[in-house]
Every structure is written in C-alpha cells, then in structure tokens.
C-alpha cells in the first residue's frame, strides 16, 4: 500500500473570490492583470501576451470562432470537391458514346459588383473592429467618460450592415436574372452548383448579418467594454472569412466552370 505524502503547508494560500468577473471593463483599468480565464492560480506575469489580462475572454472567443471557421471551411471544401467531381463526370449514351453534359452557367455580371461591395464591407468592418481597441478611447471609457468606442465604431458597423444587405440584395438580383433566363436550381448540373454555392454562402452571410446586428445592439446596450469588443471582433473575423471565402467561390464560378 503506497503511502501518501501529506502536504505540509509551506506558504499561505492566496484567497480569491470565485466569481471574480472582472475583465477591465470600467471598474478596473484594462491593463489589470488579475482577470483570468477558467484556470486558477494563473501567474499572469509568466504568460505571454494574449494569454493574460483583459483580453483573455476575447481571445477565447476568437479561438472558438476560428475553429468554427475551420470546420466551415471543410464544409465548403466538400462542396467544391463535389463540384469538380460532378463537372468531370459523364455517361454513355444510347449509342455508347461517352458524353459529358456539363453546361457552364454564365454568371450574371452583377456578381462583379456584389464582390466589390462585399470587399468594401470587409474594409468598413475592419475599421469598426480596430476602433474597438483604440487605447485612448479605452482609457476614456475606463475613466467613465461616456462610450467613445461605441460612438466611433457604430457608423462603420452600420455601414457594414448596409453593405452586407446590399450584397445579399445583389445576389437576389443575380438569381432573378438567371431565373428570367429559365435557369433554376434544378435546371442542370452546373446550375445546381451555382445556386448551391451562392445559396449556402448567402445563408452564411445572413447569419453574419445576424451577428452584425447583435454587435450593433451590443454596442448600444452593453456597458461592459469587453463584451462589446468580443461581439464586434467575433463578427468581424467571421465577416472577413466569408469575404475571402466568397472570393474563392466567385473565382470558382467565374473561371473554373
């Protein structure tokens, strides 16, 4: 029977409050190093940047979003590989000739405009995101001088929402234009993909706009700076990822059909 070593106390243990929900959002300076994540006894001084202090929660959410985006990327990888496989699949007709009936869907030109809009929206979003972290404003908020961060970020965020909706409206127009040419989801193999890819992407943007609206509300409602930062930052990364993804998908539809 192994003996246990009973610890004899050599140093007084620090007492901490369990629910120390402090994240540098106004009650304490944002450089406070005592805020921690789930772990305890975190010796902040030994941790690298980003692993300590007020950004702990932000970085955690960011990481969650990155993993979600990685998994989403696989979703689109699967769809794009289906695209290439189906594109190269043919069949033998009644006369034993091998035929490949892939008819490329000519993309409506408005997609170019939509792409530009989406890129622009990423720019406005990035400006909004950066405004959340301006140090002078953060200090102002901590000193209780109103919500300068919200004031600065709101217009850019609103611009992003508008641009995002414009993009979706543009996609809608593109679908209408195709429909007028009698090209529907079920029309042919390549139209399946056109609608599927633009559709799933639009759905993602729809969710993105939901996130933007949440951030928008958050900017108004939340008094905690960190919550606002997380909302805007998370929505921004998601939005950028959807923008980059769209570039690839658009390139695929425009040049690889």
């Amino acid at each position: 029977m192994p003996a246990t070593i009973t610890p004899n106390k050599t140093e007084p243990e620090r007492k901490r409050r369990l629910e120390d929900h402090d994240n540098g959002s106004g009650r304490r300076p944002p450089t406070d190093k005592r805020t921690g994540g789930g772990g305890d006894g975190d010796n902040w001084n030994e941790r690298s940047r980003g692993h300590r202090g007020p950004y702990e929660r932000l970085h955690r959410y960011r990481m969650g979003i990155f993993f979600a985006l990685a998994s989403d990327l696989m979703f689109f990888v699967a769809i794009v590989s289906t695209f290439f496989v189906n594109q190269s699949t043919g069949h033998f007709d009644a006369y034993n000739h091998y035929v490949n009936e892939w008819l490329p869907t000519a993309i409506p030109p408005i997609l170019w405009l939509n792409t530009a809009i989406l890129l622009l929206s990423s720019v406005t979003m990035e400006i909004a995101r950066r405004n959340m972290f301006r140090e002078t404003d953060v200090m102002d908020e901590w000193l209780g001088l109103g919500k300068p961060i919200t004031r600065r970020a709101l217009p850019w965020l609103s611009a992003t929402i508008v641009l995002g909706m414009l993009f979706l409206a543009g996609q809608w127009v593109a679908w209408r234009q195709l429909a007028i040419q009698q090209i529907f989801f079920r029309t042919n193999q390549s139209s399946h993909f056109f609608y599927l890819i633009t559709g799933t992407h639009a759905l993602h943007l729809f969710l993105g706009i939901g996130a933007l609206l949440a951030a928008f509300t958050g900017l108004y409602v939340s008094r905690q700076l960190e919550t606002r930062q997380i909302l805007v930052d998370g929505a921004a990364w998601y939005w950028h990822a959807m923008g980059i993804l769209w570039l690839f998908l658009f390139g695929l539809l425009a040049f690889f059909q």
Binding site: G37, G38, G39, D42, N43, R60, M63, S71
Partner: peptide, 18 residues
C-alpha cells in the same frame, strides 16, 4: 458535435491552469 468539439478544443488550449 462540431460545436461541442470547438468547445473542447478551446477549453484545452485556453483554460489550462498554471
């Protein structure tokens, strides 16, 4: 499962104690 796995990954990467 994806959501739960994202949670697990982030927890392991971010929430380890000292």
């Amino acid at each position: 499962s994806t959501a739960s796995s994202i949670n697990i990954l982030t927890t392991i990467i971010r929430n380890r104690c000292h």
